[in-house]
Design a protein around this nucleic acid. Structure first.
Length: 433
DNA sequence: TCTGGGGTCCTAGGACCC
DNA sequence: TCTGGGGTCCTAGGACCC
């Protein structure tokens, strides 16, 4: 190959949720801190100090409570409004460093560098890092490589390997081939993007244990034993571009809103309220996406973790007569579904609503027998717009449907929630001089 | 006592059609 | 005894990601 291929960077927030909290509460620095999942269930983000204590991703809160206490640590409820807003800020800073950006997740962004041949990309990466830190307070790691998979791998080195951790940037182009082989050989095959625990186990059984082993495997053979996804990963490890940059997120194919309850539920009315609330939440997402749903699935679940408990995990799909994004219609469908699957005598832990068969609002077909209702539909549309805009300004749930209930005994636990520092006037940090 | 939530893609196999 | 073949669509299950 004569020309230098395009390069990709992966910029990724370190311990993102914890870092967001630390920006506004310096007392969290230097201590083990975890951020908990919904319902304060398990650890979904950990500070370096918490990782050093051996706290794992997804570990239940009750298992680590004492350990944290002993070490002066903290467990915070997740403050999603804060993280989403900090993410938006971080992404907009990163966007200044390339015309092509993919926002891959709440804390990760790919950049593509085409026509940057004469640039020192390592220095460029260092500038991204410095500026994100200065402008948002979030520390990030930067990995650079000729494919997205390699950029991911480089990012992992940047964040974890002692040789790069201090600078926080790793550009694979800077490494001599023998050097690269060493790092790839040190890396467990499961740490390659696209290889999960199941496949790692199967691969190890075939003698493929490191990233280097996988890189040198035959893509055709492994495609037959696994699938085309793993074949692509192998090619990407070898610098062959297979996974494109997605600058605009493709339209969603399904929208899920589900939640474990703060307590086990037996009363059908509580479940009806919960399912109505989840439908309303899903409907908001649906309208933001500019889509309408043709189907709605309702599901219920008892507590999986308790083997002594009688288990019941029903689900049902309701097909709507025409695609809709109207909260009222979706709530009605969901309640109908719940009535179908609910059985008394079980203690329910979780419920959810899934919107499926989504179609774009703009190309949506009129209902065969619905023409008479057009003016009515227009009015509904206006009503929903007002609802969304009011809730957008005043906070979700300010205005809601009666079916969602007022007591909401099933609401999730969030016992240690920090303020909405950047999204709520009440949450503004006050500095006493 | 206490164990998250929201997505995507791929494949195999069955149903159905001609 | 003997019972086609090829194509498409749909679904469930399994894997992955954050």
């Amino acid at each position: 190959m004569t020309s230098i291929p395009h390069q990709y960077a992966l910029v990724d927030g370190n311990n993102f949720y914890v870092s967001c909290e630390r920006v506004f509460n310096p007392r969290l620095e230097g201590r083990p801190v975890v951020v908990l999942s919904n319902n304060d269930g398990c650890a979904v983000a950990r500070s370096d100090e918490a990782k050093a204590l051996g706290i794992n991703m997804g570990q239940p809160h009750f298992q680590i409570r004492d350990l944290l206490k002993q070490h002066g640590g903290m467990a915070l409820s997740s403050n999603y409004a804060l993280y989403a807003d900090m993410s938006r800020r971080m992404m907009s800073v990163i966007a200044n460093y390339s015309p092509e950006q993919e926002v891959y997740s709440i804390d990760e962004s790919f950049l593509r560098f085409a026509g940057f041949k004469h640039w020192d990309l390592t220095a460029h990466g260092a500038r991204v890092r410095q500026q994100v830190k200065q402008w948002t307070g979030i520390p990030v790691g930067v990995g650079i490589g000729p494919t997205k998979t390699l950029a991911k791998l480089a990012n992992r080195l940047a964040k974890r390997h002692p040789d790069f951790k201090a600078q926080g940037v790793c550009n694979l182009q800077d490494l001599e081939p023998w050097h690269q082989i060493r790092y790839f050989t040190e890396m467990d095959v499961q740490d390659v993007w696209g290889v999960g625990p199941r496949w790692a186990e199967k691969l190890r059984a075939l003698g493929i244990e490191s990233a280097q082993d996988l890189k040198q495997s035959d893509p055709e053979t492994l495609r037959k034993r696994f699938n085309v996804v793993l074949e692509r990963t192998i090619r990407e490890l070898n610098g062959i571009h297979c996974i494109p940059l997605e600058e605009a997120p493709p339209p969603k194919k399904q929208i899920v809103s589900s939640r474990s309850f703060g307590q086990l539920l037996t009363d059908k009315n509580d479940l009806l309220e919960a399912v109505s609330t989840y439908s309303a939440q899903a409907a908001v997402k649906l309208r933001k996406e500019g889509q309408a749903a043709s189907g709605l699935q309702v599901f219920l679940s008892t507590n999986n973790f308790n083997p002594d408990e009688p288990q019941y995990h029903p689900a049902t799909l309701i097909t709507l007569s025409s695609p809709t994004n109207d909260t009222a219609r979706l709530i009605k469908a969901a309640r109908g579904g719940l009535n179908r699957i609910f059985k008394p005598g079980f203690r329910y832990k979780k419920a959810g609503v899934m919107l499926v068969d989504l179609v774009s609002n703009s190309i949506r077909q009129g209902e065969l027998f619905g023409l008479v209702e057009e003016p009515h539909l227009l009015r509904r549309g206006c009503l929903l717009e007002v609802l969304d805009s009011l809730n957008g300004q005043m906070g979700q749930g300010t205005l809601r449907f009666a079916a969602e209930g007022t007591g909401q005994p099933w609401r999730m636990r969030r016992n240690n929630l920090t303020p909405g520092y950047t999204t709520d006037w009440e949450g503004l940090v006050v500095v006493n001089c």
